[in-house]
């Protein structure tokens, strides 16, 4: 591990981003914050993808995280970010540890479709919840931190700082996890599940744990999005949202923990520019770039970088 300089670079890059965040215009800060939030969701997704499982329902936890933030602020009067995020983690862990029991039996497209079904069931419930504003969603109370209420104008910046810190911690933890035996276990399952079983490791248990971790990360992403955008609606659990996460994951590639961040940022930029330049045909630009990326960069953006032997060996 001595030669592993990734954590240092991660720290340096994100701290640099933090400093840059103080000087760039507000709209770009927002873009960065949303990219990090989505990046976190996708980080969980690539954890599953390295195991050969693709969830088309990460929107379930993304939405759950957002709604927990919203409900605790609006209905329970809890606006303290630390407390709210704790609630988010608890809720996501609880729900995913129940659903995980069922889901860890499924593979391939069936895993994808079943995760999507659960996410769409949450969508349906929220659409039916008129107390929560149905599809219109509702506005989120201004967040506070340990009793400190920042100015409305500064909120963008401190939410950004919060997102950077959470992202940094998540990236470091996940980086270590990817390099642990359990992390490598995922790739083993993807390659050949039966051999993993013969080695005395339970693939279901491994998948179960990964599913819960991915859920918590997605919930964090949703919570950050909600705090930053100031509004939640059921669209967060809609299948298209989950589909976008898969899109980002493929764009960034699954080879590195920082890939989702870059992928998420790139998507936001492509979409913003496409909407700007071609308000009538932006979908075509988005679809076209997706095809080009898949065609020329089969392993995501990360395949632009020089190959490393250890990764080729996998």
């Amino acid at each position: 591990m001595g030669s592993d300089r990734t954590p240092i670079f991660l720290c340096a890059a994100l701290l640099l981003l933090l400093v840059v965040g103080l000087f760039i215009p507000n709209w770009l800060v927002f873009l960065f914050t949303i990219s990090m939030a989505k990046g976190l969701v996708v980080l969980g997704l690539i954890l599953l993808m390295r195991t050969g499982l693709v969830s088309f329902g990460q929107g379930l936890y993304y939405c759950l995280g957002g709604y927990i933030v919203g409900i605790s602020g609006q209905h329970w009067g809890i606006t303290d970010v630390a407390l709210v995020f704790l609630l988010v983690v608890l809720a996501a862990t609880l729900l995913s540890s129940i659903l995980g029991l069922l889901l860890c039996r499924y593979r391939e497209i069936f895993f994808a479709m079943l995760t999507m079904a659960f996410s769409m069931i949450l969508y349906g419930i929220l659409v039916k919840s008129e107390k929560l504003g149905s599809t219109d969603g509702f506005i989120i109370a201004q967040a506070t931190l340990f009793g400190w209420q920042p100015e409305v104008e500064a909120s963008g910046t401190w939410i950004f700082a919060l997102a950077v810190i959470i992202t940094l911690v998540a990236l470091l933890v996940m980086h270590l996890y990817f390099r642990s035996p359990m992390g490598f276990g995922g790739e083993a399952i993807r390659e050949n599940e039966i051999r993993v079983e013969y080695l005395g490791v339970s693939p279901r248990r491994l998948i179960y744990i990964k599913y819960v971790v991915a859920a918590v990360l997605a919930a964090f992403g949703g919570a950050i999005t909600a705090v930053a955008a100031g509004h939640v609606d059921p669209e967060m659990a809609f299948w298209a949202t989950s589909g976008e996460f898969v899109f980002i994951a493929l764009l960034g590639g699954t080879l590195h923990v920082a890939a989702p961040l870059v992928g998420a940022f790139l998507i936001e930029i492509i979409r913003t520019i496409a909407l700007d330049l071609a308000p009538y045909t932006w979908q075509m630009i988005l679809g076209g770039s997706l095809l080009l990326i898949i065609f020329f960069l089969p392993k995501g953006l990360w395949s632009l970088l020089p190959k490393r032997r250890e990764e080729e060996g996998l």
Partner: peptide, 20 residues
């Protein structure tokens, strides 16, 4: 390519055809 990648490919086609 992987099945999931193929879903994404067809999603790209879908986006393009929507605008076409």
């Amino acid at each position: 390519r992987d099945e999931v990648v193929m879903i994404l490919v067809t999603y790209g086609v879908l986006l393009i055809l929507e605008d076409v």
